[in-house]
Each structure stands twice: as structure tokens, then as C-alpha cells.
Design a protein around this nucleic acid. Structure first.
Lengths: 348, 348
DNA sequence: CTGTTAGCGCTTTCAG
DNA sequence: CTGAAAGCGCTAACAG
């Protein structure tokens, strides 16, 4: 009823009331140098008084072709991504930069089939991981607004990456000895929506798939010891969550012969393996060594702590956002840090 | 150079090329009933051909006063909120609903001092927790677009809440006995940006502060046993993160007499207390009982598992988004489930 | 079912 | 510094 509603004034209304031109009001808000400080102060105060909070943003977006909104295109649906601690750290980094620059963050699902819903009004795109939907990927490539990709590449677009193969190699080298029985729990290695061993299923495209690179790194480390790993000791899980991780962990721990080293492609998986091993009274690291990937907080906190690759996820977000806003054209590869935790101590 | 750029056509251009009117093109996209299916198909196919992906969204937003963008106003900065597992579950719920309804999600910081940046073009607001910045709160209250609040109330606006006091009472009752020495680790109870005991500092406003309600519930449970808790056994931490939680946990565990029950206002805190206790060789629950709040996954996973209040965070998000989109005016209080974990078994 | 047109609210150029 | 006016791209009312 008597809710104190802000009046719905337009810039034109205000100009009329103040007996000045619309251009001057507009300039007062957007181009301080176009009028005297005194007049500007007068106008701004009058607007405050009247309850006019500034030019309508929708109209500004149309007119200026600029919205101050940045779309963060996730690899998958928002509801899935937001449960992923690595993605959250990335978003944290992005949002810090955007806040500083007065930009706003729109989350966009990577399973959308089109970009048209937002393409016309956002100022640019940060793509975190190759979007699950290929049509979307094509749309992003085709449109002309600024794009920065993360963890994958698009022709002629700047990207932020880490060296997955080297990092995987290094962390695996921490754990693997010549006589070990080694298992690998991989993420999205093949086209399957269940937990399973990869056997001879065709692996996904190396170009779009960072986990393929991690697999290469693991394999290299294993083979360098003179050891090897068979396809039936490599598991695939379709998503990085605890449900699938647990299924894989239980399969691994009940395999014959039972592996005494498990190389995991994420910390979330490694933690689940650790819990399953503990529950089954398998001693870590004495009877089972485990390595992870990512460097999420929980991995550093659990006991024994996970040996893992700390990728600077927050920094990734900061870099991507900074690059987008500054218009940089060069791609970067961010360094990782290998963390020797307690789950992979090799001293018998 | 020869990048296949989508041509920048307007609806008018297309109308011209197809020898039809702009209204018809517009209708083909927006009001199928206004033209024959055949003509519509022809137009849509021609547009596809021409690379016209539909009416410009920025212009549509201005003209229709509708953007399909929903702003999620967080209690705090985005970068802080995104590290909070409870907030992430909430976002998960919200985004599921928005996806289904074809809406887009804009994350908005609760520490912004104004709403003007987005107010003009978003279709509505979901406020998750009272925003840290009071000016922002006033702005939200003053504007006329739909709002749903979560974990707090705004006059004449629908809200989603849980019964914090009763839940806190119930989980505390699980753990507290008459002769216990009880400590409480609270969240944002007083105006202090450090970890500290509350002593006689004035508590924050009961209306805006769910943790005050939890405190009431805890106190009630304690007093019902004939026991009591002093102000010097109640800690405040300014933010729900591991750093502050650890500081508080260490203070609690080194207090004299050492508490044998710690009631925590979040699972994150409870988990930290558990880790600190384990590290100090204090047996849980034999020498120390712990309760949490929230029901985050990690709390159910750790060993011993945390006794806690499972609030349906995802459902909260679903409810809030559904209410906003459906225009419901009634507030709801969602049920919680008490989970009797291993950290609060009272059988000696 | 189709075509014409006013106008959503603003910015910016241009002439004064 | 001010005022007039074009037009960003579209939608919807209205007349046919």
C-alpha cells in the first residue's frame, strides 16, 4: 500500500524538472569533464533527492553496447559445477577481479545448446573447461566478443592452462616403484556414463581432454620405473563426485591382485580411496599409496594428507579474468606445485 | 582475417531481405500464433541460413522490460561465498530451477553498496542471507521487482527459512549432560572481526541473525539439563572458514577446565574441532563430544562422523527460485533433520 | 495474417 | 556549457 517506492523517473523527466537538457544530466553521470564540477554536484544531489539513481541500465546496454556483465561459461551445468571445489576456487578468483573492476558475473551452463540468450548483451566470455555441449562450443568460437579459455584451447583465443602431463608425471613419480601393482582412477577418459575399467574403449580427444594428458604423465612415470599398467587397471568415472569415486575405489581395492598404488586424477577421488581403504583396514601408505590431483583444501586437511598436485585454481580465475578485461592476446601456462603428502611416502 | 564471423544482421535487415515486415519476423520468433506455421518455418530457416540468431537481446530487454536474468544476492562477497559449502548447495538448488525455466543466474555481492548496477535489467532477486551491506539491504527493500529472501525476512516479501532455534536445541540435546563442561563456537555473534570469546559484548540483532537463534537453542538445551554455559565459554568467529575455526578450536581445547562438549554453529567448525582434538590425542566422543550444524557432505564422511543438523540447502535454493518465478507471496519454513553421528554418542 | 509506426530510455553529435 | 535530434534494435498496438 504505502510502500515507499522509488519513483520511476527517466533521465528526461529529471532534465525537465531541473530545467536543463537531457545531455547535461547524462554527462553528469557519465562524462564529468563535460560540465562544471559545481553544476554536476547540483545535478547529482537533485537526482539523489528525487530518487533517480542514474540512467536506466537496460537502455544504456542497448545504446552503448556494453553491459559490464561477463559470462562465465562452465564446462557443465551450473548445479554440477558448483559442487566441485576446484571450480569454486576458480570462480573465487574470477569474482575477485570482476569485483575490483566493477563487472558482474553471469554463470552460464556448458550444457546449453546455444549462446544466443546472452551473447547480445554480455561483454565477454570466460570458458572454464571445454563446454560439454559441442554446439555451444561452436557458437563461442563463431561469435566476436572477447573470450578467454581455461584448461582448453580455441583457435586465435587466449587461454590459461597448466601443464597436466608434467604435473601428473611428477606426482606419480613420488609414489610408483618398479615392483608395485599400480591402478589409475581417471576422469572422463572414455565415452561412458558409468564407473568402469577402460579396457580397449577409445579414449576421448586428446586436444579437448586434460585427463588424457594426466594419463600420459602417469603412464610415463610408471614406465620409467620399468613397471607398467594394463588397461584393466585403469578406471574411468564419468563425473568427479563422491558417488562415482566410491564405486571406483571399491572396485580397485577388491581387484586381484590388489593394487598397492592408486594414482587418482582428482583429490576428491583420492580422498574417497583413502576413506575406503581406512574402512577396509588397509594401511596407508604402508599397504596402499595414493596420489591425487588439484590441491583442494580437504586433501591437505585429511589424515594422512594426500600427495597431490596443487594447481593454483584461484590464480587461474584471476588470470583468466584479468586477461579478458585487459584484452591480452597471449596465452599463459600456470605453474603447479607438487605436494608430498603422507599418502605416498615411499620409504619402507 | 577469414574468421567465419556471424554477420551482424538486425531484424530489420532480415525483413528487408525476405521482403516481409519486421513485425512478421519478430512474430516468427516471439509469437508463433500470429502467423502461419508455413511462413514461420520459412522465416526461421531463412534466418538460420543468413546467420541471424534471433532478435537482439539487449533491445528486447529494453523494450520488454524483461531479461530472464535473476540476480542472486549473496550475504557477502562472491569470492567468500563460493568457498562455503552450504552456499554452494543453495546455488545448486537455485540453478537447477533456473535452468529448467530458461532463466539466467547473475551472482551479486552482498557487500556492494548499491543495487543500481543491475536493478534496471534483472527480473528479480533472491537474497541468500541478509547482505552484509546495510545500504544494499535498504535498496532491495525499496525497489519493486520480485524478491525472495532466504534465512532472513524483509517486510512484505516472501522468505525461505528453517527453524534455527529448534534445530539447535535438538542437536545440542543429543550431546549435553548435566555435569558436562560445555563450550560453544558461534558464528558472527558479535561485532568483531577476530576470533574471541564473547564475554559481555553486545550480541548482534536477533532479527537479522540466525546464529543468535542457534545460540538460544543451544542455551535452552543446556539449561534444560540443569547445566549452564558462561560467556567465557562462548566463542565468536567472524567468518565460517577453517582459519578462524582452527583458532577457536585451539582456544577451546586449551581452556581450563577443558570442555568435554563443544557445540558448533557449522559443520566446518565442528570438523576443525574434530581434527584439532585428534591431533591433540583427545578421544572423540569419549573425552570430547562435538555437534555441528548444516549437514555438509564432509561432515557425514569424516570419521567419526559429525552429529549435526541437516538442513536441506539444495531444497532451500529450489524453493526460493520456484517461489520467485511463480510469484508466490507466502513464506515457508523448511524442515531439518537431526543426524546422530558418532561425535556425540552419550552412552558411557 | 501482414505492414506501419511510435516509442522503450538513453547517448552523442552537432550547432549554438 | 546547452538544446535538439537521430537512432541503438526491437515490440506491440493498430489499421488494413
Amino acid at each position: 500500500m504505502t510502500v515507499p517506492n522509488k519513483r520511476n523517473l527517466t533521465l528526461k523527466d529529471v532534465a525537465l524538472k531541473l530545467g536543463t537538457s537531457t545531455a547535461t544530466i547524462s554527462n553528469a553521470f557519465n562524462r564529468p569533464d563535460q560540465l562544471s564540477a559545481k553544476k554536476r554536484k547540483f545535478i547529482l544531489e537533485a537526482c539523489e533527492e528525487l530518487g533517480f539513481s542514474g540512467p536506466n541500465k537496460a537502455a544504456q546496454i542497448l545504446r552503448k553496447g556494453k553491459s559490464n556483465i561477463i559470462a562465465l561459461v562452465l564446462a557443465d551445468s551450473i548445479d554440477y559445477m558448483v559442487t566441485d571445489p576446484v571450480a569454486n576456487s576458480f570462480i573465487e578468483g574470477v569474482s575477485k577481479v570482476l569485483k575490483e573492476e566493477g563487472k558482474h558475473l553471469l554463470l552460464y551452463s556448458g550444457d546449453s545448446s546455444t549462446l544466443t540468450d546472452v551473447e547480445d548483451f554480455v561483454d565477454g566470455f570466460i570458458c572454464y573447461g571445454a563446454p560439454r555441449n559441442n554446439e555451444l562450443l561452436a557458437n563461442i568460437q563463431a561469435q566476436r566478443k572477447p573470450v578467454v579459455t581455461v584448461d582448453f584451447n580455441l583457435v586465435n583465443r587466449p587461454s590459461v592452462n597448466i601443464d597436466n602431463e608434467t604435473s601428473a608425471y611428477e606426482v606419480a613419480s613420488l609414489a610408483v616403484k618398479p615392483t608395485d601393482t599400480v591402478a589409475i582412477i581417471g576422469l572422463r577418459l572414455i565415452e561412458a556414463n558409468t564407473t568402469c575399467r577402460i579396457y580397449d574403449s577409445p579414449l576421448l580427444d586428446l586436444e579437448k581432454c586434460i585427463t588424457r594428458r594426466r594419463l600420459n604423465g602417469f603412464t610415463k612415470a610408471i614406465e620409467e620405473t620399468g613397471n607398467s599398467v594394463q588397461n584393466d587397471m585403469i578406471w574411468h568415472i564419468p563425473e568427479n563426485n563422491h558417488k562415482y569415486a566410491k564405486q571406483a575405489a571399491l572396485e580397485v581395492l577388491s581387484a586381484h591382485p590388489r593394487p598397492n598404488v592408486v594414482l587418482c586424477m582428482s583429490d576428491l577421488v583420492a580422498i574417497e580411496v583413502l576413506y575406503c581403504a581406512t574402512a577396509a583396514n588397509i594401511k596407508v601408505p604402508e599397504e596402499l599409496r595414493i596420489t591425487g590431483f588439484d590441491g583442494i583444501n580437504e586433501a591437505l586437511r585429511v589424515s594422512p594428507s594426500i600427495s597431490t598436485v596443487c594447481q593454483a585454481s584461484v590464480q587461474k580465475g584471476v588470470s583468466a579474468a584479468t586477461m579478458l578485461l585487459s584484452g591480452v592476446k597471449e596465452s599463459v601456462v600456470l605453474p603447479c606445485e607438487i605436494k608430498t603428502g603422507e599418502t605416498a611416502a615411499i620409504d619402507d
